[in-house]
């Protein structure tokens, strides 16, 4: 026991150990730990950022979908309103057309009736004349039937 030259030997050993650690052990270890720390921090930050971005994108997508839906309902409303309008218009047009056609038909009918009446009149007259001729040939009594014939013509 007691202090002797071992002190010097230990001092040198200690100094060498500390020097070695300072030079070759501590820097690489702390460097690696520090690098990893930075990397983890950066990774966490990136995750946070992308989460935020995702949230934002989702919100944006939702608003776009909402807009689209709104627009779609608007378009459908418009379309249905328009179709009702079209149907109404078509009905109106059809009615008018029908009325016009009926009128035209009636007009035609009345015209044809008049024409037929004229034709009938002339034919009847011819017939009456023919009948009269035949009666006359048989009876030759014009006076007796003249009154009848006149009456007939007047009636026509």
């Amino acid at each position: 026991m007691g202090i002797n030259a071992t002190l010097i030997g230990q001092f040198i050993t200690f100094a060498i150990l500390v020097w070695f650690t300072m030079k070759y052990v501590w820097p690489p270890i702390t460097q690696a730990m520090h690098d990893r720390e930075k990397k983890i921090a950066a990774g966490l930050e990136a995750a946070e950022r992308s989460k935020r971005e995702l949230e934002m994108a989702e919100r944006k997508a939702m608003s776009i979908i909402r807009d689209a839906k709104q627009q779609a309902t608007h378009i459908i409303d418009e379309a249905s309103r328009h179709s009702v309008l079209l149907v109404e218009e078509a009905k109106q047009q059809a009615k008018e057309e029908g009325a016009r056609m009926i009128e035209l038909a009636q007009h035609e009918i009345s015209r044809e009736v008049t024409q037929a009446k004229e034709v009938l009149k002339t034919q009847l007259a011819t017939l009456v004349v023919a009948g009269a001729e035949k009666v006359i040939q048989r009876h030759l009594d014009a006076s007796a039937h003249m009154a009848l014939l006149d009456e007939l013509v007047a009636e026509i």
């Binding site: 202090i3 002797n4 071992t6 030997g9 230990q10 050993t13 070759y24 270890i29």
Partner: peptide
């Protein structure tokens, strides 16, 4: 004074060298 405690010196030296070699190995 000029006496070296061989046991102390060698044990501490072996432990010390083993320690820094281990640390360097990991480093």
């Amino acid at each position: 004074f000029w006496v070296l405690n061989l046991d102390t010196f060698l044990v501490s030296l072996i432990l010390g060298i083993g320690l820094v070699v281990f640390l360097r190995f990991v480093a």
